[in-house]
Design a binder for these strands. Structure first.
Lengths: 337, 337
DNA sequence: GTTAGCACTCGTCATGTCTAAGTGCTAACC
DNA sequence: GGTTAGCACTTAGACATGACGAGTGCTAAC
């Protein structure tokens, strides 16, 4: 029993099953793929693969289907990432180049990726840990209500309304603004928590209270900038692959809606040297995704933010991986300097 | 054959069907509801209702189920909006009062509403046509790149990066900012397009080009503020009511994802004097929602923005309508002056 | 290590039968 | 006229049955 052929058999099973959604038997295998041996031999190989937990039979005398472990081996060792067609690559390029705004870029990206893969696409907003304070604006909405706007040099803007706890005039607020801005301009958002107390301390005691409140607001803003968000598209594709989620797509939709779940999942996916990381079925840390796989990769500066797709475990991994990788590259290029 | 009893029968059919998801027959009807007549009489009534197109039989010798038209009559004339429980009302109040930010309020609202109704909840961002310019900020990101921030007195902030087409220093930009701000502060966003040319004209010819670009940017921002957005929650509820969408929930998910569709739908729903508007099944202008109903109402100043839920036609209208109405009221109160 | 052959296992499909639910109609009743 | 009882008729769904085919595992021979 040759080891390489066994892998070949596994590959064939995965490919056929992904293609037909039906358990694949030994006979069909020798017919469709010209392995140079008889079906009996394949049966032996399959028995061995089953012993190793790479494939499984839904019931006696049905063909075999890959297990999570089988997909894993397939993805890691057997499959070759299938390059995109020329047309597809051109589509990516033209579609993404037409956009300017960050929101717009990400929006287009997910749509594109979901169409390319026929799956749910997800993209995380870029991390802004390296972002610095570019501008701070305080706007008096009511005697005690102040709108704080924090602008990072990445172009990201965050705002929030707070209650400063004491009446403030426009002038007083402008004064505070200048003070904050002078001290904080250029400060990395990540260092804001440390930098704020000094600014507050330097304020006139009379306005200490308001300054305190403003500092708290800025702190919250900075951390909500760190706090991650994501964009998503193609949920309707889930309905099409309804059959692939034996129970229901409910848990999957829940996971997608609970963005926290997805974000943690994405960030926990270690970066793979091959460029794309795959998390298969029960490997996912969230139970609702036990029947789903996530294919993701980093993009942008430091590849810290993730872009990826989510679909049933029974997914065309080579093509999906190729699409994700390609999109991530274009994305990096466009967002890059 | 008494007209009132016929309506009573329709009501009973709708209620039972909504409750059991099964076609309801004449016998079951007389058992569950104490109409003072025999099943034979009910059968006559049912035949009449069927003739009028209010109910239909899926096949010979099954019970009847309401048609869209039947639901319509039920909603319009028969049903009484069921008041929320004390606990539910308290839940709404406490949950919504804990929030400050507009985004936060809307986010909480949809979550709450989707939980209350076990349906998909949708809320449109408030129209800002009456909003006025509170503040304008230009930030130089690169020699020619300027970040424009437009802050409305409603607390809404919009930003965008533009290319001004000529090199500008920080000072020059600050000058332009002051000029724009002085002229435009307090201008309703809706009047911005008319107000901008004058400001540009008043600028020094040297900076005319940049001013032109900035004005275009502001115009775009103002209109993108007018442009509508929405928040949504509870899509996972669709999966649970999978059975209610005979074909697939795919088209529904598509409609939800294409926010344009939903927004048009919401805005086309005329305001109903009773407070809540319902659009049932094929009444919806979008084919993918032929099996779905939307229950919505306006909120906020002028009730111009909409909040509502989407679910299968087989939906508990009285409760849903009550929930939507209650949530809209709290929402108006919180966002109110 | 590979192959052919064969007995055995099950899921699937087509078929047939039976039952319960529910209707529509007719004739009697108030 | 509206209401009722009764009955023949229709049909979906549940269930059993059996043939079929796909597929396996094993053994013995190559």
């Amino acid at each position: 029993m040759s080891e390489p052929r066994k892998l070949e058999v596994l590959r064939a099973i995965v490919e056929d099953y992904v293609h037909s959604r039906e358990p694949v038997g030994s006979k069909a295998l020798v017919e469709r793929h010209h392995l140079g041996v008889s079906s009996a031999t394949i049966r032996n190989d399959m028995a061995a693969l089953e012993d190793e937990g790479l494939i499984t039979a839904p019931h006696t005398s049905a063909g075999r289907i890959p297990t999570d472990k089988g997909y894993r081996l397939f993805v890691d060792q057997i499959s070759a990432v299938k390059p995109l067609s020329q047309a597809e690559r051109r589509a990516i390029q033209t579609l993404l180049e037409g956009s300017d705004d960050l929101d717009d870029v990400l929006e287009r990206t997910v749509r594109l990726l979901s169409q390319l893969t026929n799956q749910v696409a997800v993209v995380q907003y870029p991390h802004l840990s390296r972002a610095m304070v570019r501008h701070i604006e305080f706007v008096l909405l009511a005697p005690r209500q102040v709108l704080i706007v924090l602008i990072a040099d990445t172009g990201k803007v965050e705002q929030r309304v707070i209650d400063v706890g004491q009446d403030l005039g426009d002038d007083a607020l402008a004064g505070l603004r200048t003070r904050f801005l002078k001290s904080l301009s250029g400060t990395p958002l990540s260092l804001l928590p440390q930098a704020l107390p000094a600014v507050v301390a330097a304020c006139e005691p009379l306005r200490r209270h308001a300054a305190q409140a403003l500092a708290r607001g800025l702190d919250a803003l900075a951390s909500s900038t760190r706090e991650e968000r994501m964009v998503m598209a193609g949920t309707a594709n889930l309905a099409r692959s309804n059959v692939d989620f034996p129970l229901s797509i409910g848990p999957v939709l829940e996971a997608l809606e609970e963005q926290v779940v997805m974000l943690r999942l994405l960030s926990e996916m270690a970066e793979d040297p091959r460029g794309v990381t795959v998390s298969i079925g029960r490997e996912n840390p969230y139970d609702g995704l036990a029947e789903a796989s996530v294919v993701a990769t980093g993009y942008g500066p430091g590849s810290s933010a993730k872009v990826g797709v989510l679909g049933p475990t029974r997914m065309d991994y080579p093509t999906t991986m190729a699409a994700v990788r390609a999109v991530a590259r274009y994305l990096s290029r466009i967002l890059g300097p």
